[in-house]
């Protein structure tokens, strides 16, 4: 064989329209897993910096000058934060439900229904996310 042609990885993600359920589940699981890690570190950063500057003095909390309390209240007043919270819930719920699906797959249970269980996780995630909207968006203006 003198020469051959390598088409590279064009088939991988350029062909996303041809992906099947199992592949989508894998991509979403990776994505949500790393989103959760990202959130975890942001969360720690926000809390630890505001705790460091906080006095914890009940009188200051009462007077609304405690840094920790004001930081969190300030964040919760932002509409974008409320939207991101809904997003975080969606990401976490999907990761958990699909994580349970993957645990079943690892145990060899119901592998014939792996596509259906993926669709079920998607639908359940959607339902839970929509149901959470009133709670997350209450008492905030745009």
């Amino acid at each position: 064989m003198s020469q051959s042609y390598n088409r590279g990885l064009i088939e991988d993600f350029g062909r996303w329209k041809e992906f099947k359920a199992g592949m989508w589940a894998w991509i979403f699981h990776k994505f949500t897993g790393w989103m959760l890690i990202g959130y975890l570190f942001t969360h720690i950063a926000v809390l630890s910096t505001s705790i460091g500057a906080a006095s914890g003095d009940p009188a200051m909390i009462q007077a609304e000058t405690d840094v920790y309390t004001t930081t969190l209240q300030g964040l919760e007043d932002l509409f974008i934060i409320r939207v991101l919270e809904v997003g975080l819930l969606a990401v976490a719920v999907f990761h958990i439900l699909n994580g349970l699906r993957l645990l079943m797959v690892d145990l060899g249970i119901g592998l014939e229904a792996q596509d259906k269980s993926f669709y079920a996780s998607l639908i359940l995630t959607g339902v839970i996310t929509v149901a959470s909207v009133p709670t997350f968006l209450s008492g905030v203006g745009i």
């Binding site: 099947k20 199992g22 592949m23 894998w26 690892d106 145990l107 060899g108």
Partner: peptide
């Protein structure tokens, strides 16, 4: 194997490939 099920999806002989791989992992 990351259980993407692509192989099982395409196998023309309907072999439950992912299932076999998972059983060997166990």
């Amino acid at each position: 194997c990351q259980t993407q099920f692509s192989c099982t999806e395409v196998c023309p002989k309907d072999i439950p490939l992912t299932e076999h791989i998972q059983e060997l992992k166990r």
